[in-house]
Write a protein that binds this DNA or RNA. Structure first.
Length: 755
DNA sequence: GAACGTAGAGTTTTT
DNA sequence: CTCTACGTTC
């Protein structure tokens, strides 16, 4: 078998340079995954490296799974004594911590629980209540994200508190919540997602013997999607490569789209700094897309200033033009997409098509339109299976079965289904737990032993105790699926749902049946026990739901990273949606949106559609929408207009033609990339030929504030204009005021002045 | 303590 | 518009 035959020169170099640090800068569609898979196979088959000494880290479980399959098929036939470890950063950390966390000496045990984001938010909520903060003023969501952000930048609660300015009320409050939150985590023997990385790094830093153990184990390390790693992940890699530096990282700066989550692009620069003499290999030939698609993508991303720039080329044919469609409203946009998909499927029933949007909330219209036409689709992300309330309830029972002291899990299901333990009783439990510094479970024991208070509540508590105790014993001897069944049936959960008899309850029951199926399958395949089943469930990500064999897939552009489709629709190309309004004010964030656009475009192999709507409902209110600025950053000659009647594109083309003919110099620097401004262009032109100066008067009307400018408000102070809607007296503007957030104001009455 | 109602707030992207 | 949090009634 020749592993190298199908590779180009650079790919081959990336595969065969097995010793020492290697940085592979791989453009979109340049065979990145292939290189990693071949490299693993090469290490095993050609260099005789024991598979157990190889570690490959990917971004999602799905990518890991796919990698495993590819390696397996490359090595088909050869018998292996062990398997390489191919996993995500988070599951790698869980693996290490489940073995060694006790050496950290912080009181954590190997039975620790993993809190996902939903759990974290709940815990923050509890902390807020306990500290007496008003949830209206400080949302649990935003605090959780602030804490997570701090943790990802290497700050703990103390360091975060130390950075608080004397007048920063909000940060001071967050700091107090942060401290309590971490205390509670520890008391519950729980780690949140960020802790998984933090504790692993701490462990490896502090314990030389453990560090040595993993250095010796993982002699060859590969990291995929390196541009999306954060500081902690870099530290982890550094610690694992202390003794050897057979490290290969693969990434593309143009596809860095997770900065908001702490991903640090300087990790690429640091790589060269930390790993001296690193070999740098560039993969610049794209095998995926047509010339036109690649040109469109490169053209858009070339508007970013902060990039090294690279030449990505393809030997593929020019291909078809980019197809563009402007819809009058969002419903029509969805109908166009669904109808076009139907056409493609009629022509080729095996076509693979993706609809990509910026936010999950956008999926609904497309789902409805596809359903109306009877087109089956899969949807990735959004409300995923493991996020459903009933599934999370049962998982809470399962967590309790392994650790009844997990107060967060206990709190969730103590009265679900209703079993006569109401608010009064729960408050009492909470108070006692705080008094004795123990868990809710301990507090319940005290109450049932003492038997004081109202007899009815005590009886209900005793019943609950028995239910949980039974689960705990069962979990010690039965396989995961048995415990899952018990958690659904013996707790009365199923009975309560059946009693409801509604359609919704039936759907919930079906979901629980799915959960049982997943557990049965898990038992048969992995046989790892309940603990591992829960770990896997906690670390499942949205992108993991993607099935390669589906005809039509709906998902966010983020979730699409790493995937490819012959036909791609990028929808909702509107200002405020994509680029997202929150990114408009900040250049770095806008550049990240543009990279996201690049990622989205380069998912397409053959045919690319770009669509947008002129109006759309937001919160039930109909708003007019401007075409996305990214549209005007495309090479227009590569676009074919499928819109009915006049569109933004046709106006834009007309305005460019006019500019060239009548005023080649005069309008330089100003781009007419919205319908409003094109209308303004015509007004100006007419005004000029009329030899009056009406247009100037319109343009310089006092109190008209453009996005990007600053204004002063009598109450909120200085703020940045994000968006402007409508004209004249009814014009509304959205302004971001630091400290107050975004406000929507009627321009005429807001009393704004330039600032 | 539970069931039902109404008011209010909220949507970026995710391991 | 839709979900959640809270208040009212039984």
């Amino acid at each position: 078998m020749d592993l190298l035959a199908s590779l180009n020169e650079q790919q081959r170099e990336a595969v065969t340079t097995t010793e020492g640090p290697v940085l592979v800068l791989a453009g979109a569609g340049s065979g990145k995954t292939r290189v990693i898979a071949h490299r693993i196979a090469y290490l095993i088959a050609e260099r005789g490296i024991p598979p157990a000494n190889i570690l490959a880290v990917t971004f999602t479980n799905k990518a890991a799974e796919e990698m495993r399959e590819r390696v397996e098929s490359l090595l088909r036939g050869s018998k292996l004594a062990s398997a390489p470890l191919i996993s995500t950063f988070h599951s790698l950390c869980v693996r290490i911590l489940r073995r060694d966390i006790e050496a950290l000496g912080e009181g954590y045990t190997r039975d620790f629980t993993i809190y996902d984001q939903d759990d974290s938010i709940r815990l923050v909520k509890n902390c807020l209540k306990e500290l007496g903060y008003d949830e209206q003023r400080l949302s649990a969501r935003s605090i959780q994200s602030a804490i997570s952000h701090a943790k990802n930048s290497g700050l703990d609660a103390e360091m975060f508190a130390a950075r608080v300015e004397y007048n920063d009320e909000r940060r001071a409050a967050i700091a107090r919540v942060f401290r309590l939150y971490d205390e509670r985590l520890r008391a519950n023997n729980a780690l949140d997602f960020d802790d998984l990385l933090i504790k692993t790094v701490q462990l490896l830093r502090r314990c030389a013997d453990i560090r040595q153990h993993y250095n010796a184990k993982f002699r060859y390390i590969l990291v995929d999607e390196y541009q999306d790693t954060n500081a902690l992940q870099f530290a982890l890699v550094q610690l694992l490569t202390e003794q050897q530096q057979n490290l290969c990282v693969v990434g593309d700066e143009d596809q860095s789209i997770y900065k908001w989550r702490g991903a640090d692009i300087t990790n690429i620069l640091n790589f060269e700094k930390h790993y001296k003499d690193a070999r740098i290999i560039r993969l610049e030939q794209n095998y995926r897309s047509t010339q036109n698609i690649l040109d469109a993508a490169s053209h858009v991303v070339s508007h970013n200033t902060e990039r090294k720039g690279k030449r990505l080329w393809t030997a593929n044919p020019t291909g078809e033009k980019i197809r563009y469609y402007q819809a009058p409203d969002a419903e029509m946009e969805a109908r166009f997409v669904a109808a076009t998909i139907q056409e493609h499927l009629v022509n080729d029933p095996r076509a693979r098509i993706a609809v990509l949007y910026r936010t999950n909330a956008q999926s609904r219209l497309f789902e409805e339109a596809l359903r109306r036409l009877g087109i089956p689709y899969q949807i990735v992300g959004g409300f995923s299976f493991y996020e459903r309330a009933e599934v999370r309830d049962i998982i809470a029972y399962l967590k309790l079965a392994l650790n009844p002291h997990d107060s967060l899990a206990l709190q969730r299901i103590i009265n679900t289904p209703p079993r006569g333990i109401g608010r009064q009783t729960v408050d009492e439990i909470e108070r006692r737990a705080r008094d004795c510094g123990g868990s809710y479970w301990e507090a319940i024991s005290i109450m049932t032993e003492q038997g004081d208070g109202r007899a009815r509540a005590i009886a209900a508590l005793k019943g609950f105790q028995q239910t949980i105790t039974r689960l705990v014993t069962l979990a010690q001897r039965a396989p995961a699926s048995e415990v899952v069944k018990a958690a659904i049936i013996d707790t009365g959960y199923e009975l309560a749902l059946k009693a409801e008899g509604t359609e919704e309850a039936d759907a919930r029951l079906a979901n629980l049946q799915e959960l049982v199926n997943a557990a049965v399958e898990y038992d048969a395949r992995e046989g790892g026990g309940l603990r591992e089943f829960l770990d896997a469930a906690a670390l499942i990500s949205d992108a993991d739901q993607y099935r390669h064999d589906a005809r039509v897939t709906l998902m966010t552009m983020h979730a699409a990273k790493g995937l490819e489709f012959p036909i791609v629709f990028i929808v909702g190309l509107e200002d405020g949606i994509f680029p997202h309004a929150r990114a408009a004010a900040d250049r770095a964030e806008l550049e990240e949106e543009r990279r996201l656009c690049y990622v989205a475009i380069t998912r397409a192999q053959r045919i690319l559609y770009l669509t947008h709507a002129m109006k759309r409902r937001v919160y039930g209110e109909e708003l007019s929408a401007e075409p996305s600025q990214f549209l005007s950053e495309l090479p227009l000659e590569l676009i074919e207009d499928l819109s009915r009647g006049r569109s933004w594109l046709s106006l834009k083309r007309a305005s460019i033609a006019l500019e060239d003919r009548y005023a080649p110099r005069r309008y330089q620097g100003k781009t007419y990339d919205s319908v409003d401004s094109i209308a303004e262009f015509f007004r100006r032109r007419n005004a000029r030929t009329d030899q009056t100066d009406r247009a100037a008067a319109v343009a310089s009307q006092p109190g008209e504030f453009k996005p990007g400018t600053h204004v002063r408000h009598p109450k909120y102070g200085r703020g940045l204009v994000i968006k402007r809607e409508g004209t004249g007296d009814s014009a509304k503007i959205i302004v971001n005021f630091p400290g107050y957030g975004q406000k929507k104001l009627i321009e005429k009455y807001a009393n704004l002045e330039p600032a």
